[in-house]
Simulated assay, not measured.
Amino acid sequence: METLAQTLGPEAWQAVRLSLKVAFWATLAALPFGVAVAYLLARVRFPGRGLLNGLVHLPLILPPVVTGYLLLLGFGRQGPLGSALYELFGITLAFRWTGAALAAAIMAFPLLVRAIRLALEAVDPGLEAAAATLGASSLRVFLTVTLPLILPGVIAGAVLSFAKAMGEFGATITFVANIPGETQTLPSAIYAFLQVPGGEDAAMTLVLISIAIAMGALALSEVLARRAARRVAGR
């Protein structure tokens, strides 16, 4: 532990904590929207459905730097959304950790939606129809029948989203830069160490920490998904 503490200074540990914070809030903020959009794409037929599907998956196709630049144009202090947020609520996203969370959430959103959508498409619509015939409202059917059945998919999507948010670099550094203590996440810190002679050891240590966090998140998701599946099966 002394060797690890000596290898990484306070700024590096700040980057670790900030990455966990950004990934957590990015996943939490994206989750309700991900469930809603996945439900629309899996269950509802409406004009523009293909366009919505394309927009959802656009961050997977675009270079991350392009996504970050678009965020800067829209949510920067001079952008239409950014100026409105600042004037109405005093909120600034560009060059803040909250902006890093927004960028990470947008980049992770397609993975979240896809996992939940696949889970929804695997649910037998007859079960939902049977609950509806008993007088349950659409919201009650979703909360008591659909959501428990898709819970393993929701957990898988949340873990994928968290992992993607932890590793996001291109959109984040373009939108919020690489400010130590404010917007410097794990990938940004690794990049910064690699630009300094003799920083390879610190960069490798952060890489190993990233792998450990990712493996821990995957292990936790497996446990939660198995518990959810057993609950659905009534065991």
Rank of each mutant, 00 (worst) to 15 (best):
A36G: 11
E200G: 05
R96L: 03
F75P: 05
E128A: 15
V123G: 08
T172C: 00
G79S: 10
F193Y: 13
N178I: 02
A104L: 04
R140M: 07
V35P: 05
A212P: 01
H57G: 04
R114S: 09
N53D: 14
Y39M: 05
W13F: 11
I173S: 00
L60V: 00
R114F: 02
E2S: 15
P32F: 15
F24K: 07
L143Q: 12
P47Q: 11
L4V: 13
P10I: 08
V159T: 12
A156L: 11
G50P: 09
A115L: 13
T185P: 01
L28N: 06
H57C: 03
E128G: 07
L206C: 11
A104E: 01
A26I: 04
I211Q: 08
M204I: 13
A132Q: 15
A192D: 12
A15K: 01
A84Q: 14
L112D: 00
G76A: 07
S188F: 01
F193I: 04
A229H: 06
A129D: 15
L31M: 14
T7L: 14
F95G: 10
L186K: 04
L88S: 15
A15W: 05
S161H: 03
R77H: 09
P180H: 06
S188L: 15
V223P: 08
G153F: 01
V22C: 04
P63I: 07
Y69K: 00
R45I: 00
G199D: 03
E168M: 03
I150Q: 02
A131I: 11
T146A: 12
V123N: 09
T146N: 07
T183F: 03
T133N: 14
A115D: 10
R117L: 03
K164S: 11
P63G: 06
G126T: 10
Q195A: 10
G68S: 00
I190G: 03
I106W: 02
P187D: 10
L40C: 12
L55N: 09
T146R: 02
L31D: 13
A212H: 01
D201W: 12
A225T: 14
W25N: 08
E121H: 04
E200Y: 14
I61G: 13
M107T: 01
V113C: 08
F142L: 15
E222P: 02
L40I: 03
L111C: 04
Q78S: 14
L88T: 15
I61F: 10
V232P: 08
P59K: 08
S210L: 15
L31F: 11
A30M: 07
G199M: 00
A26T: 08
F175T: 00
A214P: 00
S19T: 12
E128Q: 12
A233V: 10
W25G: 01
G181K: 11
L208Y: 13
A15Q: 10
P59R: 12
I179N: 02
